[in-house]
Amino acid sequence: MTREKLVIGAVLLAYALIPAFAPENIVHLMTITGIWIIIASGLNLLTGYMGYVSFGHAGFVGIGAYTSALLTLKFGMSFWAGALVASLFTALFGLLLGVAILRLSGIYFSIGTLILGEILYSIYYNWSPVTGGFMGLNVPPPELALPFMGNISFELMQWYYFVYLLVFLVVGGLKLLIDSHFGKEIIAIRENESLSQSLGVNINQRKSQCLAISCFLAGMGGALFGAFMGHVDPDSFSIAGSTEFITIIIIGGLASLMGPFFGAYVLITLSLYLEVLGKWRMVVYGLIIVFVMIYARSGIVGFLETIFKREFRK
């Protein structure tokens, strides 16, 4: 236990110190990775722990990104209020959607979310008066007015610390959630849905709650992504994006809190190194996804488990 605390302390210290040493582009990349970790953790709750593989997650991220952008642009809300409302709105969307789409299970759920992802992408792309079509929307940078300190403008450093503060809050929150009764129930749903129902788990309620939390994190990630990049456009939210999120949690290792960290860093580092391949980049990227599916489905966490002979996953 104390050793675990030491490790967590060391990791936090490392994260706090990185911007002091690392060059700017690495800090930038790490901030994006942080946003991806938030989204992937949400997907991991749904897919890794509850066993519902969503192929439309990038679409949910888009809901958060566009809602937040529109609230700041058209309704003059501050980024903070906009992002919060956008995350809650995405969660609400998930909750309502869950009533319908959670009637499906297994591969049918995946197909349903894939169709939904296409619908959402098509809306982002075609509803030009609102979403700006393929040109997208430009999002103003957030500002923070603190008492005694005046206005803080959000530069890269502020973004980095803010995003990782959220990452650790999210992962901490998910840890509490997984260890709670709720966590045990959704794992029971993954293992055997009808058995857990007969043992008194309110599966319909648990499933929609899980989808809503997952959507909340997706919406939050979307709002952060849009404001950080200063721009929202449909191509970030296509089925390709959803495939990327699934790949992240599989490379990392399903049903593990560390999984999304490993997965997101590996994928970001890969895409960084693959830049040298120029136009072959996406070809190799696709082949890597295939390779992971065939040879490395248990992910990095699974690999560590075989080395350390310890269970990291639930």
Partner: peptide, 20 residues
């Protein structure tokens, strides 16, 4: 089932981008 779905999508992107 979903493993084949993801692998197929990955392969699709590889082949489409090879097309580019």
């Amino acid at each position: 089932d979903w493993v084949a779905l993801v692998a197929g999508l990955g392969l699709y992107y590889a082949l489409e981008n090879f097309g580019w």
